[in-house]
Design a protein around this nucleic acid. Structure first.
Lengths: 339, 339
DNA sequence: CTGAAAGCGCTTACAG
DNA sequence: CTGAAAGCGCTTACAG
C-alpha cells in the first residue's frame, strides 16, 4: 500500500488525469465529473495517498491549526477544558498546537510569537494575559485571538469567561444566608481578572450587608500559598466560620489545612470553592463550589473562533456565561435554601 | 512595525541582498558574512519578519511538530506528562500537535492518519494502542512512533514505560510483609499492557508466597467501575484486608467507597495505588502508591524521539524505568520496613 | 468539467 | 560568501 510519501502527481499519473484534477477531487466543493472522481479515488486508495496539510496550508493560507497557550495544568480545570476544546475542534477539522506558558506576560509574549510562526489560524490563550503589543501583531496578521477564562479589555481581544463577579456575589449571598459572621476570602491571584472579579463581587455583597470580611488574602492560585494562609487563619484565637476560596484547586488545600487543624469542613467551618472540577464531587472533598460551565465556555470559544476564521474579521467579543452554585458537604446550607 | 505577513523577499529588498541571503541568515549553521547578517537582521527587525515555519517544513521535510495522541485527561497522570513533554520539546524547538483519542484501536488509527497528514516529525501515543497496519504506515513514511506508558511488541514501535511488572511485585511484597492475608486486586484495564503487567507481577509474588488473592477484578481504569467493585468487595461477610488498585485514579474512588462503608484506609484496610500523581500526596487521600517516575519517562521519551528524528532511523527501542513505592497513610507499614 | 501554469514562502545545491 | 534557479506539494484563476 503506502510507500514513503505519495504525492498528488503520482496519483494523477496512475489515474491518467492531471494533477489539478486530483487536487479538485480532494478539495471540498470543487468540480469534478463522477468519472474523474472514481478514477482518482481508486488510484489514491491504491497508493495510500493523503493530501499534505502543510502544502495545502501554504497556498490556501489556512493551516487548520489552532494555537493554544495553556498553563496551570495541575489544576484540573485546564486539562478538562483542553480535552473538550480538542474534541470540539477536531470534530470540525482543526487541531491544537500546544504551547505551555511561563506565567509572566513576557514569557507568554515569546510563546505567542513562536505560535504565529506556525501560521496558526487562531490563538486561544487560556489563563494567561498578553501584552497589547502582541495582540496588535496577531491582529495585523488577521489572526483571531481569544482569551479563555480570563478577560483583558485593554488589548482588544475576545474573551470567554464565566460570570465571575456575579459568582462572587452568589457565594457571598449564600454564606450570609447561612448565618456566617466571620467570612474570610483566600482570593484568586489578584494579577488575574478572574481573581479580581470574584473578589469584587464577594466584597460588594458583604459591604451591602454591612459585614466586614474576616480577612482577605491573595492565594495566588497556588496550593501551598492557600494552604499556609488557611493554616494561619484557623490557628488564631478567633477564627473564621467560613472561607471563600478563589478556586477549587486552592480550596482542596484549604480543606486539607482545616482538617489538619482538627476541624471539620461543613460543620466547624464552611468552605466554598470556584470551578466545580470533577474532584470537587469526589468523596474526600465534597466541595461546595460555584460551577464554571466549562462545556458552554468551550462551545462559545469554538464557535467564536471558527466564526472569526471563516468570516475573516475579528472584532473582539466578550462572552460571559453564568455559573451556578453547587451545594455539597463542605459548607453549611441555609435553611430552606434553594438554588 | 509588523504589517500583515512579511516575507523573506521583502526583507531582502529592504536589506539590498538576495532572498537566499535572508534565508541563510535565519538558517542555523549557514554561511553569511557579518555584514550581510547585520543588514538582514536590521531589515528583518524593522519589518517584523519571522520565517514561516510551514514553508520551511515543506522544503526541509521537517515540520518541528510532534503529534501527541492522548486520552484519559481526567487522570492527573496525563496532564502532568503532557505539560512536561510540552516543556521539554518546546525547549528544543519542537511543538506538540494534540489529538484526543477515542479509546478504541479503530479510533486511534483514524486519528493517527489525520496526524500524519500534518507531516509531523514523530508521534507520541500516550495510553493508547495502535494497529500494526498504522504503525507500518508511519514506519514507511519514516515517522518515528513511541508509545508512552504503554507497550506493544507486536507492532514494532518504541515504548517507554515504568517497570510495571516489577512494580506489581513490589506492591505484593509490601502487602505480604505487612501481614495482609486477604489481598484483593482491582486491576488496571486488562486490555492495556500496564494493567496486565502490574497484575502479573502482583500475582507472581502472591503465588510464590502460596497466597491466593482475595479477589481479582478489572477496574477498566474507570472511577465508577473501581468504586462499585470496591463497594461490593467490602460489603461481603469477610472482606479484604488490603486492596491493590491498578492506578491512583481508581484508588481515589476506592478510598471514597471504603470510607462510605465506614472503614478507615490504613487502619481497617490497606489501599495501594500506582502512579503517584500529585493528588496522592494531598491530605484527603494520603495514598501509598508505586510511583511512576514521570520526569524520567518524559526525558527518555524526548531523547528517544529527537534522536530518531535526527538520525533518520527508527529502530524500535523499549525503555523501562523502575519506580519506587511511596509510603503514606493509606496502607499499614510493615514493622522495620525500609524502602 | 479539465489541463497547463503560476505561485504560496521558503531551502538548498550550483556556479561564481 | 553570494545570487539565480529549481523545487517542496499543493490550490486556484485562466483558457478551452
Amino acid at each position: 500500500m503506502s510507500q514513503g510519501k505519495v504525492t498528488s502527481a503520482e496519483v494523477a499519473a496512475r489515474a491518467g488525469v492531471s494533477q489539478s484534477a486530483v487536487s479538485r477531487v480532494f478539495t471540498p466543493g470543487a468540480s469534478a465529473s463522477a468519472k474523474t472522481v472514481a478514477k482518482v479515488r481508486k488510484a489514491a486508495e491504491e497508493l495510500g495517498y493523503r493530501p499534505n496539510v502543510l502544502a495545502r496550508a501554504m497556498v490556501s493560507g489556512r493551516s487548520r491549526i489552532i494555537g493554544l497557550v495553556v498553563a496551570y495544568l495541575e489544576n484540573q480545570f485546564y486539562p478538562i477544558a483542553l480535552e473538550l476544546l480538542s474534541n470540539a475542534l477536531q470534530a470540525r477539522g482543526y487541531h491544537i498546537l500546544i504551547f505551555t506558558a511561563p506565567n509572566s506576560t513576557d514569557g507568554v509574549d515569546g510563546v505567542l510569537q513562536d505560535l504565529m510562526d506556525y501560521q496558526v489560524d487562531a490563538i486561544i490563550a487560556a489563563s494567561v494575559s498578553m501584552s497589547s503589543d502582541l495582540s496588535a501583531r496577531a491582529q495585523a496578521q488577521g489572526i483571531p485571538v481569544v482569551l479563555f477564562n480570563r478577560s483583558q479589555n485593554d488589548v482588544g481581544v475576545s474573551n470567554v469567561t464565566s460570570a465571575n463577579r456575579l459568582g462572587g456575589r452568589k457565594v457571598a449571598e449564600f454564606l450570609l444566608a447561612g448565618g456566617h459572621e466571620r467570612i474570610a476570602h483566600i482570593a484568586g491571584w489578584q494579577g488575574s481578572s478572574t481573581g479580581r472579579d470574584r473578589q469584587a463581587g464577594f466584597m460588594e455583597v458583604l459591604e451591602q450587608a454591612g459585614q466586614k470580611p474576616f480577612a482577605i488574602v491573595d492565594g495566588m492560585y497556588k496550593r501551598d500559598v492557600a494552604k499556609s494562609c488557611a493554616t494561619r487563619l484557623v490557628a488564631g484565637e478567633t477564627r473564621p466560620d467560613a472561607i471563600f476560596v478563589g478556586n477549587d484547586h486552592m480550596a482542596f488545600a484549604v480543606i486539607d489545612a482545616v482538617r489538619e487543624a482538627g476541624l471539620t469542613p461543613g460543620r466547624d467551618i464552611s468552605i466554598v470553592g470556584f470551578d466545580d472540577v470533577p474532584l470537587a464531587s469526589w468523596g474526600a472533598y465534597d466541595l461546595t463550589t460555584l460551577r464554571q460551565p466549562v462545556n458552554r465556555m468551550v462551545e462559545s470559544t469554538v464557535n467564536l473562533i471558527l466564526g472569526q476564521i471563516e468570516s475573516g474579521l475579528a472584532d473582539p467579543q466578550e462572552i460571559e456565561i453564568e455559573g451556578q452554585l453547587i451545594l455539597r458537604g463542605s459548607a453549611r446550607i441555609p435553611e430552606g435554601w434553594t438554588s
